[in-house]
């Protein structure tokens, strides 16, 4: 019985979903692109320097970390959950990387093993998020609020308030060395995007994440193991935050406990502005790319126009409200908490 139910529901779901969804969301998923193009046009009219190759390099440099973080968060938001532990995972990853690789504070020099260890740390943070969320049945925003501060606290405890210089040329090279004019980190972020796109569209995990976000009751009835999908998604997101941590450490050339400050904000803004709905089920990592570019281009434009950087957080806050207000499907939610 369960088996027939499974195959009956799963087959039309896989076959019928893309056409219906693509048609319905064509306008909504193109709106952010239009915003991005308009934004670029307006800024280049005000300041022609915007369209230079040098500025494109600056934008790539600024976009690489938000892109990697945003990709991770997209998977969580697609499920209709939220991950507030971005800064916790990133800070912990950056600090552990700075302690394990060739650095100015201790004698460690584990090279590629350090990177591997950091990826495992990121995965564990995500795994813990998922376990708390699923097994204690704690809403994701509370579970990840806790792990956010635990991650940053642990990073602080490891460093005791210091900052550790990173001397490993390979890691510094991610931000400094260039390939075709763009830093290696930006290429790495694009590789992450390609990988995430593959996971999202061509694996079972990706389809199940969409299914959970679209309607969890239905997903359960079609035999999807919600527990496993949720834990896997949080773990995956944790790995992306760790990659973000590696890039952040490379960009700053050091690891400290403040390295993550403000990054949660940019991440959530980028995902939501890109058009991924907080209610889940609708969106894509490609839309997150557009969202990241909107956020980065806007802050780049503000710098070109001489607006102080501290205004940017406020502008992002207003963007979150506007984007969520425009993208939420209110018919689906009668009670908003």
């Amino acid at each position: 019985m369960a088996k027939t139910l499974d195959s009956d529901l799963a087959a039309p779901d896989v076959a019928g979903q893309p056409t219906a969804k693509v048609r319905r969301w064509r306008t909504a998923s193109w709106a952010p692109v239009v915003v991005l193009v308009l934004l670029c046009a307006i800024i280049s009219v005000i300041n022609p320097n915007f369209m230079s190759f040098g500025n494109a390099q600056r934008i790539a440099q600024a976009a690489m970390i938000p892109l990697v973080l945003g990709i991770g968060a997209t998977f969580i938001i697609l499920m209709g959950s939220i991950d507030l532990s971005v800064e916790g995972g990133l800070t912990l990853a950056a600090v552990i990387l700075s302690l394990l690789t060739l650095n100015g504070a201790n004698g460690n020099d584990f090279g590629i093993l350090a990177v591997l260890a950091v990826l495992i740390v990121g995965a564990s943070v995500g795994f813990i998020n998922g376990m708390i969320h699923v097994y204690f049945k704690v809403p994701s925003f509370m579970a990840t609020l806790g792990t956010w501060f635990m991650g940053v606290g642990l990073a602080n405890a490891l460093l005791g308030g210091m900052a550790v210089r990173i001397n490993d040329p390979w890691i510094r090279g991610l931000a400094i060395e260039r390939f075709l004019g763009f830093p290696w980190g930006a290429w790495l972020a694009l590789v992450c995007l390609a990988g995430a796109f593959g996971i999202q569209n061509y694996t079972r995990l990706g389809r199940y994440i969409y299914a959970l976000g679209g309607g969890e009751e239905l997903a359960v009835l079609s035999g999807i193991s919600v527990v496993r999908v949720r834990i896997a998604a949080f773990t995956l997101a944790g790995v992306f935050y760790a990659i973000g941590g590696i890039l952040a450490a490379a960009q700053l050339g050091l690891g400290n406990a403040q390295i993550g400050n403000g990054r949660l904000f940019t991440t959530v803004t980028a995902v939501v502005v890109g058009g991924t709905a907080l209610s889940g089920g609708q969106g894509s990592v490609l839309q997150t790319l557009v969202g990241v570019l909107i956020v980065v281009v806007l802050s780049n434009g503000m710098v070109l126009m001489g607006v102080p950087p501290s205004v940017q957080i406020g502008a992002q806050g207003l963007m979150i409200i506007a984007a969520v207000a425009l993208s939420i499907d209110r018919k689906l939610m009668r009670i908003v908490k």
């Binding site: 939220i82 925003f141 904000f265 959530v268 939501v272 907080l278 102080p308 501290s310 205004v311 940017q312 957080i313 406020g314 502008a315 992002q316 806050g317 207003l318 979150i320 409200i321 969520v324 207000a325 939420i328 209110r330 939610m333 908003v336 908490k337």
Partner: peptide, 24 residues
């Protein structure tokens, strides 16, 4: 309540606006 934005995201956004105002 008017835009029907979940409270954690509305207040997260508001915290950005307030933090930015304080910094400026």
């Amino acid at each position: 309540v008017l835009l029907k934005i979940p409270s954690f995201i509305a207040t997260l956004a508001m915290s950005g606006v307030l933090a930015s105002s304080a910094l400026v």
